[in-house]
Design a protein around this nucleic acid. Sequence first.
DNA 1: CTCGAAACCTAAAACCATTAATCGTTTGCC
DNA 2: GGCAAACGATTAATGGTTTTAGGTTTCGAG
Lengths: 191, 191
Amino acid sequence: MPRAGLTPERVAEAAADLADSIGLENVTISALARNFGVADASLYSHVKNIRDLRVRVAFLAASDFADRITAAVAGRAGRDALVAFANAYRDFALAHPGRYAATHIEIAPEEAVRSTGGARIIGATYAVFHAYGLKEPDLTDAVRLLRSTFHGYVSLEAIGAFRDPREVQASWDRGVEALATLLENWPSSNS
Amino acid sequence: MPRAGLTPERVAEAAADLADSIGLENVTISALARNFGVADASLYSHVKNIRDLRVRVAFLAASDFADRITAAVAGRAGRDALVAFANAYRDFALAHPGRYAATHIEIAPEEAVRSTGGARIIGATYAVFHAYGLKEPDLTDAVRLLRSTFHGYVSLEAIGAFRDPREVQASWDRGVEALATLLENWPSSNS
DNA sequence: CTCGAAACCTAAAACCATTAATCGTTTGCC
DNA sequence: GGCAAACGATTAATGGTTTTAGGTTTCGAG
């Protein structure tokens, strides 16, 4: 019987693809094993348990996500960079719902440092925001606000929460514009 | 053998409480049955299946949520109402994580009409926003933006995504203020 | 070729969702 | 008050999932 050639990396990648097509919560050890044509227990040679598998998917997804975002904002600055960042964010989340969901599982700080993807995303985010001349703590406040908006928007959109006939794409574009304007006129803390 | 006195309502309520304490995804038929001291199968007299149970929790939670929000904004207007809305939103989500999560499970529009909670929340939201004099489609765009921000913020906070030492409460307060300012200066569509 | 590590397997225990068949308990009604 | 139907709950059984333990096969380096 030929071997499937599994490795932790290939298992995580397959799990990520599966998550994008059937949803992260439906990615089971069994489903993944079926995918590879191996017995369920075989996967335990490569991942510790289902939680470990999900964390691996999260790290992989964060790295992919960071790639897209850094590519999108490269060579751009100011509002231009912000719009590119926002659209890259939403495009990734809608194109890779399973991977995107994985980037939002709860991970302890000690565990999170094993991945560079998260730090790269944060770095790219602060880089975009630095152009707006915000100083701490305003910078962190603004980053949190916009990050929340992006995350909330794509999450709600993904579950079909926007039922008004108004086009979601148009709403998004206007929202991003409004946020850019908000950043340009950020009410600083000592005012 | 004495009866446990189960009803669909009591089952859903217990499920909601359980969800708040152990997380919605860990609310299983088995765990709930254990809670009541009955056999797993007994619950099937009251709920169709696990999905039905979650939908019931979602409806119950939406109703509770709507109560809190309408109470918070009652008698307030303008920025005052918006701040009250925002804080009621966050307080509920942090105090009732399981119920809050239930309000964001995917529910088909046909099914959603069986609950009035969702509509009441939307009504309260639009009421708060009307004070800002926005006309469609700006109104819907603004509602979507702020709803996304609130949802994103509490979701990220709940999974521990804000790791900067900056106090989350302070960030939130500043963010809500910034959003209020944004609403007052909303860049209208034909400008 | 061989031998050791890596890859994969079978078996089994434990938990969860669901259905079917059954049986005691209420309840409404004469 | 008594009885039949509806109800509330039970046991039993099926099938899927996670995980551990231990055994066997394959592959590549020496």
